[in-house]
Structures are given as structure tokens and as C-alpha cells.
């Protein structure tokens, strides 16, 4: 078997270094006592600043958590029901609904942000946490739908028919057959939706009003005010937090699949 050559190794190393070096620089400068990028000694003062003197940042983080959980749960319920309907039933307009669910994935985010802002303005809804919630549910639904459908497609519809033949009602079938089967997909979809919601900047930028800014929006305004070393500390906290979350959900997920 031919081995990959020096050229592809070189490009791979270049890309990997390119992706990692800026974050390593942020990591190192988060411990720098100076406000500039010149090293002037080790200090934890930016972490102190982040945890004790950044009230608005923690308020926006609180908003982000509220929005992420509420929109992910709502999108998961709507998306999972949709996945069951689209995967295992035939009815009129099925194709049209399927096409509609692709739109939030393929449209540039800015288009969704602009049009939903114009819509809220048209119906006279003031921008608040509610409008952020509605927008987040909208862009999360298709991702939950795809994740749950991928799980359902592994199973044969005949198990549902068998349940009916053995006398199960629709509710029995839903609670005792479909939900347990779909559960790993539903949980994966929920986690994906939480991540997408926490991460979203562009759509939230359009639909957040005064007092309803989320963490990404707050970071955006911090960047525009100029370089703040507290941001370096925040990025380290976010990377470590995500790594811990990824590790613990991976364990949760594999234990679910084993069951």
C-alpha cells in the first residue's frame, strides 16, 4: 500500500498548527499580568476579573443558558414528532414539508436573521428573550429532525406494525416502542440543539433586544470595545468547559447505546 507523501504531511501539519497556534497564544496571554500582548509575568488577575468583576458577562451567560435549554427542548419535541411522521408515514404534502425543513440548513444565517426580524417588526412583537427563543427554535428544528430521522431509519417499520397487530394503541406504540428506539437520536439532537443555540451569534444579533443579549453578543460588544485580556481567560474557560462536557456526554451517550 502506498503511503501518503511528504507533501500531504506538510500541508496537514501546516493546517493543524494554523488552527491551534492562535488558541495557544490566547491561553498563554490569559496568564499574562500585562494588558498588552508583551509578557510581563504570570498572574491570575484576568481570571479574577472574569469571575468577580464581569457582572454583565454573567448576565448574558445566564440568558444564553435559559435560551439554549428552552429552545433545545422545544425544538427537540417538535423535531422528534416530525421525524416520526416523516420517517414512517405517508400523507399529502409530505415532500413539501421535507423541502421546507432543509431551508434553515442551507440558507445563510443572515437571511434567517433578517427575515425573522422583519417578521417580528411586522406583527409588532418587541425584541426580547421571547423573540430570541422563537428564532432559536426555528433554526434548531431541522438539526434535531435530521438526527432523530437518522436513528429511526435504522429500524424497520414492521416492528410498529407488529405492535399494532398485538393490540397496542397509538399511545402504547409511541411510549413503549417508538420513544425507547428513538431515545439515543433524541438525546443527540437535544445536545446538538443546545450547542447550536449557545454558539449562535448571527441570528441572535438581529432578534435580541435591550437586556436580552446572549454570551456571543456580549463577546461581540467586548471585542468592539477593544482587546480585553478577560476575553483570553474566558476563552480558556470555554474550551475547558466544552472539553469536560464533550467527555461526559460521550460517556452518557455510549452507555445509552449499550442498553
Amino acid at each position: 500500500m502506498s503511503k501518503p507523501g511528504k507533501f500531504s504531511l506538510g500541508v496537514f501539519l501546516l493546517v493543524t498548527l494554523f488552527l491551534h497556534i492562535p488558541l495557544v497564544i490566547l491561553f498563554i496571554s490569559s496568564f499574562n499580568s500585562s494588558k498588552s500582548m508583551r509578557w510581563e509575568g504570570f498572574s491570575l488577575k484576568w481570571y479574577h476579573e472574569l469571575f468577580y468583576n464581569s457582572q454583565p458577562l454573567w448576565h448574558s451567560f445566564y440568558n444564553s443558558i435559559i435560551i439554549a435549554i428552552s429552545s433545545a427542548v422545544t425544538a427537540t419535541i417538535i423535531g422528534s414528532l416530525g421525524a416520526i411522521g416523516l420517517c414512517w408515514y405517508n400523507f399529502k404534502m409530505k415532500k413539501a414539508i421535507q423541502t421546507l425543513t432543509f431551508f434553515p440548513i442551507i440558507l445563510p444565517e443572515i437571511i434567517i436573521g433578517v427575515s425573522i426580524l422583519i417578521f417580528f417588526n411586522k406583527i409588532g412583537l418587541n425584541l426580547s428573550l421571547l423573540t430570541v427563543f422563537l428564532a432559536h427554535v426555528t433554526f434548531n428544528i431541522p438539526f434535531v429532525l435530521m438526527t432523530v430521522m437518522a436513528r429511526l431509519e435504522e429500524f424497520d417499520f414492521s416492528i410498529v406494525e407488529a405492535a399494532y397487530d398485538l393490540g397496542a394503541s397509538e399511545l402504547d406504540m409511541l411510549l413503549r416502542i417508538l420513544l425507547p428506539i428513538a431515545m439515543p437520536g433524541i438525546i443527540a439532537g437535544l445536545l446538538l440543539a443546545v450547542t447550536l443555540s449557545l454558539e449562535d451569534f448571527v441570528i441572535t444579533f438581529f432578534v435580541a433586544g435591550p437586556g436580552s443579549s446572549t454570551l456571543p453578543l456580549h463577546i461581540f460588544s467586548m471585542i468592539r470595545f477593544g482587546v480585553s485580556p478577560a476575553l483570553n481567560a474566558l476563552s480558556v474557560v470555554i474550551i475547558v468547559g466544552t472539553a469536560l462536557l464533550a467527555w461526559s456526554t460521550k460517556n452518557l451517550y455510549s452507555s445509552l447505546l449499550k442498553r
Binding site: 488558541l23 451569534f201 456571543p216 463577546i219 471585542i223 482587546v227 474566558l234 476563552s235 470555554i238 466544552t242
Partner: peptide
């Protein structure tokens, strides 16, 4: 794994 805006920052 880190925020999109922090990667820009």
C-alpha cells in the same frame, strides 16, 4: 470547541 467570536478575537 471554543466560541466562533473568540476564534475571530
Amino acid at each position: 470547541w471554543t466560541n466562533f467570536l473568540i476564534r475571530i478575537y
